[in-house]
């Protein structure tokens, strides 16, 4: 039990031991081990990123199918579970079309950068006890900062495509991401006020000792989930993509591999948002019987499924209502929530 719980930590320890031994044998300075371990961590994060994106793309299509009274993809592999891999191969093999008047370097850069923010954020999220690649004291602030960057590649894509639909989409991304950053930060602040720390692992420890913060801060949880959906540009806040209004919004001029990168990055962004919600509100990797990392995966799975459920149920909100909802409802609510939290904490 203990062994399975710490399996990834043990693997990391083993790898570190192997590197130490190798470096000693080659007569190189042992300080290089840390550099090599960073590389290993990055590889691990990329693998996690790609795996969860591949899984959640097919899971979304399955779940959407069940919601819409149809079986969903069910041909490739066992009950269709290999469909995403097939689609990814197809997209990679496709011709890479770049519009003639596009800003070509930026057009490419946008697709490449799309994966960076979720990877940076995943580094700080504790998947289990001692399983955060980057255990920062200001973990929450760091994750908030890098997830904000996620709107930059989308804006670049909208600008570089030289298409009016893309440009409108790009403008909407900035509009939305900056606005929803505010209630999201306020919601997380009230959590931090309760837990008394910015460190993600310590927040989980706090929840292990007391109780899940979703019961202490239910309002903050709801606001966080809404803002997270908006930050990930998911329906009902998928205005930048807005298929029925802007054809494909910022992604109109993207095809093949570049489109696939954006598509997968979207799921990675969602996974980060779900992971953060799990860590901050649902007790992270804590839970009985099962190993911690499995609890983490299960909880994020539930939140991801909620994201998908919402997407396939609600109509799209209009751009101006998105903003008025944020500034007129969410921000005052979270401010009030912080005030009440502060007063209660002061009295206790």
């Amino acid at each position: 039990m203990e062994f399975i719980n710490n399996i990834f930590v043990n693997i990391a320890g083993l790898v570190r031991w192997v590197f130490n031994w190798l470096l000693g044998w080659l007569g190189l300075p042992l300080g290089l081990t840390d550099v090599l371990m960073t590389a290993v961590y990055w590889v691990a994060i990329v693998v996690v990123c790609v795996l969860c994106a591949l899984f959640y793309v097919i899971w979304e299509r399955k779940l959407a199918g069940y919601i819409q009274r149809r079986p969903g993809p069910n041909r490739l592999g066992p009950n269709g579970w290999l469909q995403t891999i097939g689609d990814a191969i197809k997209l990679v093999m496709k011709e890479d079309i770049v519009p003639d008047k596009a800003d070509k370097p930026v057009h490419l850069l946008a697709a490449l950068l799309a994966f960076v923010p979720p990877m940076l954020a995943l580094a700080a999220i504790p998947f289990g006890e001692g399983m955060a690649a980057l255990d920062l004291k200001l973990g929450v602030v760091y994750v908030l900062a890098v997830t904000t960057l996620a709107s930059l590649p989308v804006l670049l894509a909208g600008y570089a495509s030289n298409n009016k639909y893309s440009l409108i989409g790009g403008m909407r991304v900035v509009n939305q991401a900056i606005s929803y950053e505010v209630p999201q930060a306020f919601a997380l602040l009230s959590v931090i006020m309760v837990a008394g720390t910015f460190n993600l692992t310590e927040i989980v420890h706090f929840q292990q000792q007391h109780l899940w913060l979703v019961f202490v801060q239910p309002l903050a949880f709801v606001v966080y989930i809404i803002s997270a959906v908006a930050e990930c540009n998911r329906a009902p806040f998928d205005l930048p993509e807005g298929e029925s209004e802007l054809t494909a919004g910022v992604f109109t001029e993207y095809s093949g591999m570049r489109y696939a990168l954006f598509y997968l990055a979207e799921y990675c962004n969602m996974f980060v948002a779900a992971g953060l919600a799990t860590t901050l509100f649902l007790g992270g990797f804590s839970g009985p019987f099962l190993p911690g990392w499995l609890w983490f995966i299960l909880k994020t799975f539930v939140i991801m499924s909620v994201f998908i459920w919402v997407r396939w149920t609600l109509p799209r909100i209009r751009a101006d209502y998105v903003l008025s909802f944020c500034w007129k409802i969410l921000v005052p609510l979270t401010l009030l929530n912080m005030l009440v939290t502060g007063v209660v904490l002061y009295l206790i």
């Binding site: 959407a64 819409q68 009274r69 329906a235 298929e243 029925s244 396939w312 109509p315």
Partner: peptide
């Protein structure tokens, strides 16, 4: 109509 407003699932029930 419902689908164009963004609720894609809304199209499947009337089509049935």
């Amino acid at each position: 109509y419902i689908m164009d407003l963004g609720a894609v699932s809304g199209v499947f029930y009337p089509f049935q």
